[in-house]
Design a protein around this nucleic acid. Structure first.
Length: 813
RNA sequence: GCCCGGGUGGUGAAAUUGGUAGACACAAGGGACUUAAAAUCCCUCGGAGAUAACACUCCGUGCCGGUUCGAGUCCGGCCCCGGGCACCA
C-alpha cells in the first residue's frame, strides 16, 4: 500500500485540532520556555504565498524540535488586519473592511492549517478586534503621558491618489511604497511620536542582539548617529547669530561662506533690501518642489546670496551668507558653514557661484575637486594669532583641539545628531485604531483608560476627503462628545493610527491574549519574553522592527515589560522566486499556489522541499521538479518501513544488532539534525535524512528501535508522515512530545579512517589506517604506495605534515 | 557615490578552525522490469588527456596578484549580480 498523503494528512490535522495538541502549558510549568514567532501576516485576499510558507515551515520545525527537547513552546499566530487594501476594497465595493478581513482570515487560516503547522490557535489574535486595539490605544496613552506623543502642524507626505499621509519610511523615491503613486508635501496637523528621544537607546540596544549583521547595519544607518560640534557665527551688523553643526571643526579656517536652509527663521531677518526680491522668489520656488525633487542626487545645486555677511570665528574673515535648498532645515541647525575645499557639495556650489575656495588640508588639488581625506591628513593655512593655530596637526588631532577651543571660548559645544526623524503617527483613514483623544476648546484631553476602547463607528462612506480629512470626521454623532446635558464638550480625534501600531506589541499580547483587565499580565510577560526566535522578511528591517523596538524600550522604561529588547534572535527568510528566476508575480504568471502543490504532493513534501531548496536566508528559484525529489524521498521512506498491506515491513525486527555502518549513520543523523535545526541549516538536515534513507534501502533487516528514533527525528520536518508511522509502530499518543533521542559520540567515530596522502599539496593517494594512528605508522604506510613513491622520489622529503585522521603531506624538493 | 550580502558542474546546492572541491537532489544519458507507458530499481554524470582495462596525469570554486607544505576558505587590487541608503554638513 502506497503512502496516501491526502487521507493521512487530513487525519492528523484533525487529530491535532481535536486534541489541542499544541496548546502551550501555563507559565507555571517547570519546563524552560521557548518563544518562537513568525511575523504575523496581513490577511490579503490573494491568500497564502509559497514565500509565506518558507518562514512558517522553519519556525514550525524549530517549535516541534524544541517541544521534543523538553521546552514549553509558545508558537502563536495572528492577523495584522488593519490597513489600506481592505479599506480600498470597501471604497470600491462598499463591503465593510470587517467583512473582508473575516473572509481573508478564514481563508488564510485554512491554508495555514493545510501545511500542518503546530500553532497554538487558542492564542490567535487580530489587531482589528476591539479587545485587541483597546490595548493599542492604552499603550498610546502611556506614550502620550510620557510626553512622547505630540500634535504638530507639519509638512507631511500627502499622497493625493491614496488620499493619505505617509510616514517617511513609506515613501520610496518620491512615490508611495504601496502602489507607487506620487507624493507631495503639504502642511497638516498630525500626531507624531518622539522616536528621536530613543535614538541612542535604539542604537545601543543593537549591540547585544543575535540579529543578522546587515539588519543591524541598516538600522544603524537609519538612525544615522553623527558626532560633531555646534557653534555660532556672528552676523555683520546684526545681534543674531547663525548656529551651525559640523563634524569637521578642523576645517573651520576653510569656511569661506555660509548657507541657510530656505526655511530658516533668520533668512527674513538678515536679507538685505537689494536681495529681498530674489531671495523671496527662491523660497517660493523651493516650496513648490517636492521632497523628491529637492533631494534628487546629482541635481544642480541652486541658491541665492542674502546680501549679508557672517564672521568666521577662527579666521575673523567676512564671509557671504547664502540660502540654498541643498541645506535641509530638518537636520542639525538648518544652517552650515561651507568648506568648499574639503566638502564635495560645498565645492560644487562654490564652483557654480564663484565663491572662494580655501585649502586647509594638504594633499589634494582643490582647483579640480574637493579633497575629503581624513585621519592622518595634515592641516595647513589654519593659523590666527588671536584665536588658535591648527597648522601641522592631523585631521584627527585638529578636530579635538578645535572642539576644545570652541567650548572654552564659548563659541559652541560638541553635539550629537541623528538622521532619524520623529515618527508621523496619524493617517486620514477609516480602517485603523482611533486615537483615545478628545480635543476641547483649549486642550487636548485623553480618554480615561477604563473607557477604552474608543470603538470605530460604522460609516456609510469610507472615502477620505480630498483635503485630507478622515472619513470619521463626517460622523458628527461620533465626533461630538457631549456632557449629560447634551452640550458638546469636545471633539474626538478623527485621524487613525498607522498600520504599524498593532504590530508594535502583538508579541506581548500573545503571552496573554485573553486578558480583559490588562494588556498582559506581568507574570506571563516575565515568563515568555523575550521572543527567542523571530523569523520574517527582510523588508521590515527599518519599519516594524524599529518601531516595535521603540515601543518596547518605552514600555521597559515604564516598568511594564521585563526586557529592554523584544526579539533576542532574528532571522530573515529569503525570497522564493518563480521557476524562471524572477520575482513571483501575477503579471509574470509564475506564481506557485501552495494549495495546488499540497493537493498533488502533500504538505510534507512541500515542507521538506522548501527546506531542501537551499539556505533559509537566500533567495532561490522554485522548481516543481525539485519538489518531486522530496516527494520521492517520502514515498521511499514509507515503502522501506511499511509493506504492501500497510503493516510494518517484515524487515523490521526487535532483536537485531545493527552493523557498525548503520549505527554510524544513525547516530550521525541524530547529531546532525539537532545541530542543523539549532543553526537553522535545514537544507543540510534534509540531505542527511536522504543519506540515511538511501542506506536503509540497502539493508536486509532493520532494528525497530532505530526506526523509532528515526521517526521521531523526522517529525519536525514531515509531521504527518511521522505521526502515521509512529502509530503503525504501535504507539497511542501523538509523536509531538516524544523525547528527542540522544546520540552516542563513540559510534560516530569509525575504527578506520581514510587519510589523504599529498606530495607538495597535491593528492596522490588515499590510505585507510586505524583511527588515531601514529605519524610514523601513517608515513611508512604512505611511502609504501607506488604512486606516492613515484612523486617523493623526484627529490628528497624535506618536511612532513600530518593532520591526524585526515591528511599527510610530504614536502619534496 | 557610500554601506551590506553574494559569485562553486547543465540546475538547486554541500564543504567545522585553511586540510581529499562538487555531499544530497534535479535535469540528462544508458540499462532492468513491462505488450507498452507510468511508477520503481541499477549504472554514468566538472572539463581535457590517456589506457585493452584498472591504475593514472593535467586543468578547474568571477578575474589578477600575494601569504602558506597546502587557499572555495586568509590578505591586497579589480569585475559582475542582488539589496539598502542617498545633498544628513
Amino acid at each position: 500500500m502506497g503512502y496516501s498523503h491526502k487521507t493521512i494528512e487530513a487525519k492528523w490535522q484533525k487529530y491535532w485540532s481535536e486534541n489541542s495538541t499544541f496548546k502551550s502549558e501555563e507559565e507555571s510549568s517547570i519546563k524552560p520556555k521557548y518563544y518562537v514567532l513568525d511575523m504575523f501576516p496581513y490577511p490579503s485576499g490573494a491568500g497564502l504565498h509559497v514565500g509565506h510558507a518558507l518562514g512558517y515551515v522553519a519556525t514550525d520545525i524549530v517549535a516541534r524540535y524544541k517541544r521534543m527537547k523538553g521546552f514549553n513552546v509558545l508558537h502563536p499566530m495572528g492577523w495584522d488586519a488593519f490597513g489600506l487594501p481592505a479599506e480600498q476594497y470597501a471604497i470600491k465595493t462598499g463591503t465593510h473592511p470587517k467583512i473582508t478581513t473575516q473572509e481573508n482570515v478564514k481563508n488564510f487560516k485554512n491554508q495555514i492549517n493545510k501545511l500542518g503547522f503546530s500553532y497554538d490557535w487558542s492564542k490567535e489574535i487580530n489587531t482589528t478586534d476591539p479587545e485587541y486595539y483597546r490595548w493599542t490605544q492604552w499603550i498610546f496613552l502611556q506614550l502620550y503621558n510620557k510626553g512622547l506623543a505630540y500634535e504638530e502642524e507639519v509638512n507631511v507626505n500627502w499622497c493625493p491618489e491614496l488620499k493619505a499621509v505617509l510616514a517617511n519610511e513609506e515613501v520610496v523615491n518620491g512615490k508611495s511604497d504601496i502602489g507607487g503613486h506620487p507624493v507631495i508635501r503639504l502642511p497638516m496637523k498630525q500626531w507624531i511620536l518622539k522616536i528621536t528621544d530613543y535614538a541612542e537607546s535604539l542604537l545601543e540596544g543593537l549591540d547585544d542582539l543575535d540579529w543578522p549583521e546587515n539588519i543591524k547595519e541598516l538600522q544603524k544607518n537609519w538612525i544615522g548617529k553623527s558626532e560633531g560640534v555646534e557653534l555660532s557665527f556672528e552676523i555683520d551688523g546684526f545681534k543674531e547669530k547663525i548656529d551651525v553643526y559640523t563634524t569637521r571643526p578642523d576645517t573651520l579656517f576653510g569656511a569661506t561662506y555660509m548657507v541657510l536652509a530656505p526655511e530658516h527663521p533668520l533668512v527674513d531677518k538678515i536679507v538685505t533690501e537689494s536681495s529681498r526680491k530674489e531671495v523671496n522668489e527662491y523660497i517660493i520656488e523651493t516650496q513648490k518642489k517636492s521632497d523628491f525633487d529637492r533631494t534628487e542626487v546629482n541635481k544642480d545645486k541652486t541658491g541665492v546670496f542674502t546680501g549679508s555677511y557672517a564672521i568666521n570665528p577662527f579666521s575673523k574673515e567676512k564671509i557671504e551668507v547664502w540660502i540654498a535648498d541643498y541645506v535641509l532645515i530638518s537636520y542639525g541647525t538648518g544652517a552650515i558653514m561651507a568648506v568648499p575645499g574639503h566638502d564635495e557639495r560645498d565645492w560644487e556650489f562654490a564652483n557654480k557661484y564663484d565663491l572662494p575656495i580655501q585649502e586647509v588640508i594638504e594633499g589634494g588639488n582643490i582647483k579640480k575637486a574637493a579633497y575629503t581625506a581624513k585621519g592622518n591628513a595634515k592641516i595647513i593655512n589654519s593659523k590666527n594669532d588671536n584665536t588658535l593655530s591648527l597648522d601641522g596637526l592631523s585631521v584627527e588631532e585638529g578636530i579635538i583641539k578645535a572642539i576644545n577651543f570652541i567650548e572654552k571660548s564659548g563659541f559652541g559645544k560638541s553635539t550629537i545628531n541623528y538622521k532619524l526623524r520623529d515618527w508621523l503617527f496619524s493617517r486620514q483613514r477609516y480602517w485603523g485604531e482611533p486615537f483615545p483623544i478628545i480635543h476641547t476648546k483649549e486642550n487636548i484631553e485623553t480618554v480615561n483608560e477604563n473607557e477604552l476602547p474608543v470603538l470605530l463607528p460604522e460609516v456609510d462612506n469610507y472615502k477620505p476627503s480630498d483635503d485630507g480629512k478622515s472619513p470619521l470626521s463626517n460622523i458628527n454623532s461620533w465626533v461630538e462628545v457631549k456632557d449629560a446635558k447634551g452640550n458638546i464638550v469636545g471633539l474626538r480625534e478623527t485621524n487613525t493610527m498607522p498600520q504599524w501600531a498593532g504590530s508594535c506589541w502583538y508579541f506581548l499580547r500573545f503571552t496573554d491574549p485573553k486578558n480583559t483587565s490588562n494588556a498582559w499580565s506581568k507574570e506571563k510577560e516575565n515568563y515568555w519574553m523575550p521572543v527567542d526566535l523571530y523569523i520574517g522578511g527582510q523588508e521590515h528591517a527599518v519599519l516594524h522592527l524599529l518601531y516595535s523596538r521603540f515601543w518596547h524600550h518605552v514600555l521597559f522604561d515604564l516598568g511594564l515589560v521585563s526586557t529592554k529588547e523584544p526579539f533576542k534572535k532574528l532571522y530573515n527568510q529569503g525570497m522564493i522566486l518563480g521557476d524562471d528566476g524572477t520575482k513571483m508575480s501575477k503579471s509574470r504568471g509564475n506564481v506557485i499556489n501552495p494549495e495546488e502543490i499540497i493537493d498533488e504532493y502533500g504538505a510534507d513534501s512541500m515542507r521538506l522541499y522548501e527546506m531542501f531548496m537551499g539556505p533559509l536566508n537566500k533567495s532561490k528559484p522554485w522548481s516543481t521538479k525539485g519538489l518531486q525529489g522530496c516527494y520521492r524521498f517520502i514515498n521511499k521512506l514509507w515503502s522501506v518501513i511499511i509493506n504492501e498491506e500497510g503493516n510494518l515491513s517484515s524487515k523490521i525486527k526487535d532483536n537485531i544488532n545493527p552493523d557498525n555502518e548503520t549505527l554510524f549513520i544513525h547516530h550521525q543523523t541524530i547529531k546532525k539534525l539537532g545541530d542543523d535545526i539549532e543553526n537553522l541549516h535545514f537544507n543540510t538536515a534534509v540531505s542527511q535524512l536522504m543519506i540515511y534513507s538511501n542506506h536503509m534501502q540497502k539493508c536486509d533487516s532493520l532494528s525497530k528501535n532505530l526506526i523509532k528514533e528515526l521517526v521521531i527525528i523526522i517529525a519536525p520536518f514531515v509531521p504527518h508522515l511521522a505521526e502515521e508511522l509512529w502509530s503503525i509502530l504501535g504507539n497511542k499518543d501523538s509523536i509531538s512530545y516524544q523525547e528527542w533521542p540522544s546520540y552516542d559520540e563513540s559510534l560516530i567515530q569509525l575504527d578506520n579512517v581514510t587519510i589523504a596522502v599529498q606530495v607538495n599539496g597535491k593528492l596522490r593517494a588515499n590510505i585507510e589506517v586505524p583511527k588515531d594512528s601514529a605519524e610514523d605508522f601513517v608515513v611508512s604506510e604512505a611511502l609504501s604506495l607506488k604512486n606516492v613513491k613515484k612523486f617523493t622520489s623526484l627529490g628528497s622529503i624535506v618536511k612532513t605534515i600530518h593532520v591526524p585522521n585526515r591528511l599527510l603531506n610530504f614536502v619534496v624538493k
